[in-house]
Simulated assay, not measured.
Amino acid sequence: VPNMRPSLPSWSIIPVVMAGIIAIYGLVEAVLIGNSLTPRITLFKSFLQLEAGFSVGLSRLVAGFAIGIVGDTGVWGIAQQPRLFMRMILILIFTEVLGLYNIIVALILSTK
């Protein structure tokens, strides 16, 4: 059976790329926290960094689940109805923003 939609494989890679961007946000925060560690760190600063790490990890977990569910359902949907592509992208962008907002919160916490 010939491929009826040759653009479908390129559309299907978008959720994977967005999940990779979520991972990069976590890596950036891990590097920032790791570089700010010193031998004479205060307990307050340690707990702020721990809280920043937990918030980054939990928000990445939630955003990753959302991107996985929306990406899977969206790819199946655009295979049947290509007009759903833009709707899938909008929902993926909103789930990506969860990670972006939280990296701002984590940066504020880890730089106090």
Rank of each mutant, 00 (worst) to 15 (best):
M86G: 13
P82C: 08
Q49K: 05
L84S: 01
G68C: 10
Y25M: 07
S7W: 12
A79W: 04
G71H: 01
D72P: 01
R60A: 15
S36T: 02
N102W: 03
S7T: 14
L8A: 07
A79Q: 09
V56I: 12
P2M: 15
L58E: 02
I22W: 02
R60W: 06
A63W: 02
S36L: 09
V31A: 14
A106L: 02
L8I: 01
A79Y: 02
T42V: 02
F94K: 08
Y25P: 05
I104F: 05
D72Y: 10
R83L: 14
L98G: 00
I104V: 12
L84P: 03
V70Y: 07
V62K: 09
F94V: 05
V1S: 15
L61M: 12
L43M: 13
A52H: 00
Y25N: 08
I69K: 11
R83V: 10
N3L: 11
F44Y: 12
G20N: 09
I14T: 04
S10W: 09
M88C: 11
I41F: 09
R40L: 13
P82V: 06
I103L: 11
L107Q: 03
V97F: 12
K112M: 04
A66F: 05
I67L: 15
K112A: 11
S7Y: 14
I108T: 08
D72H: 12
A66Y: 05
T42I: 07
S59G: 05
A79C: 14
Q81F: 08
G34K: 06
V105C: 04
V97L: 15
N102E: 07
S46K: 10
F54H: 11
E51N: 07
S10N: 05
E29K: 03
G71P: 00
L109Q: 02
G34N: 03
P39W: 06
G99V: 01
R83W: 08
F85P: 06
F54L: 12
S46H: 14
G68I: 03
L84K: 06
M4G: 04
I69Q: 06
E96L: 12
L61E: 10
S59Y: 04
V97S: 15
F44I: 14
K112E: 07
Q81V: 05
V105Q: 00
S55N: 12
A23Y: 09
V105A: 10
V17E: 04
L90W: 03
S12P: 00
M18C: 13
I89E: 08
I69A: 13
V56E: 01
